[in-house]
């Protein structure tokens, strides 16, 4: 059991601190945005699995509460005593408390996100116009060029009249396809979950990288879908127009980074790096990493019992 827990601690350290930076260095992943999204989602899932397994092991460390409970169930003989109960109880209390706190923080963050989205929706609704075509768009009268999705049942895409005026017909179709891809693939859900995990595990470098990469990658996935349907030119055109507006005279702290992302997205499309068929197989293979983590944990526990 001790060996088990030590192993899990090493595994948890590798996963939470080293795996993220390692995957970051895999340059080939960038070329396959769809695969990369699956890989990063898998990375986040494996971190969660390993940490849960570690906490579970701490709680079950004999004669900890879970262990005693299992033993009690097995023998149905209450009242036998163990030595060293105080130490394991303390350990169980600490790890249980940490688990509880982590879950609470994550849940609070998710609740906050949902509440904020609802509040924003309420605000949009008061000034939105609802055009007949496209019929999934809320239109806001403002000259700034802005398009985004606000996931809900009807009219989940918000667009400014500025965008409607400034984008030509092809670019508009491409931009709408981009947003519809986000909605179809539930990117908002993925980002919200990863955000909640990050709020719960702020010390994990892996999760921090996963969040940064995922918010970038989902944009590329949506770009690819739009380019696949309407060709590269309209997507590039729309991104250029956005880029035109995104360098205000005052200069923003975040502009450098976001500008870089925009350039990166344009460069990607211009070089016609369209993901091939191969990537589906690669995605499946790499999505197995959380399953692999489960297997490692299961085998480890089996060996020690």
């Amino acid at each position: 059991m001790t060996g088990n827990i030590a192993g899990l601690i090493v595994l948890a350290f590798l996963m939470t601190h080293l795996m993220g930076p390692m995957v970051m260095r895999a340059g080939w992943l960038r070329r396959h945005a769809g695969v990369a999204v699956v890989v990063w989602a898998g990375v986040v899932a494996s971190v969660v699995v390993v940490l849960l397994a570690l906490t579970g092991a701490m709680l079950a460390w004999p004669p900890g509460p879970v262990h005693s409970w299992v033993e009690h169930l097995r023998s149905c003989l209450p009242g036998h005593t163990h030595s060293g109960e105080l130490a394991t109880m303390t350990l169980a209390l600490v790890s249980g408390g940490m688990l509880l706190r982590t879950l609470c923080v994550g849940a609070a963050r998710a609740r906050h996100t949902i509440a904020e989205r609802q509040r924003h929706h309420d605000m949009v609704r008061l000034v939105a116009r609802y055009p007949d075509d496209p019929n999934d768009v809320c239109l806001i009268e403002h000259p700034a060029l802005l398009v985004y999705c606000l996931p809900r049942r009807s009219r989940p895409i918000v667009m400014t009249t500025g965008a409607l005026e400034r984008l030509d017909a092809d670019e508009l179709s491409a931009v709408l396809e981009h947003e519809r891809t986000h909605l179809r693939r539930r990117h908002h859900l993925l980002l919200a979950v990863v955000d909640a995990v990050q709020a719960a595990l702020p010390w994990s470098a892996t999760i921090r990288h996963a969040r940064e990469e995922l918010s970038r990658l989902v944009e590329m996935v949506a770009d690819d879908a739009a380019a696949h349907r309407y060709g590269h030119a309209p997507v590039i055109g729309a991104l250029r127009r956005l880029g035109l507006g995104s360098s205000p005279p005052g200069g923003l702290a975040a502009t450098g980074e976001t500008r870089q992302l925009l350039d990166q997205r344009i460069a990607r499309l211009e070089s016609h790096e369209v993901p091939g068929r191969l990537s589906v197989g690669a995605a499946i293979a790499l999505a197995l990493s959380p399953a692999l983590a489960l297997v490692i944990v299961a085998v480890g526990l089996q060996l020690s019992c």
């Binding site: 989205r117 924003h120 000034v127 908002h188 980002l191």
Partner: peptide
């Protein structure tokens, strides 16, 4: 509304460009 849309909400990654 616009400022709100531009603010950094976790699931608002899908603002077309996160500028």
């Amino acid at each position: 509304v616009m400022l709100d849309a531009l603010s950094d909400l976790p699931d608002r990654g899908p603002v077309l460009a996160r500028f």
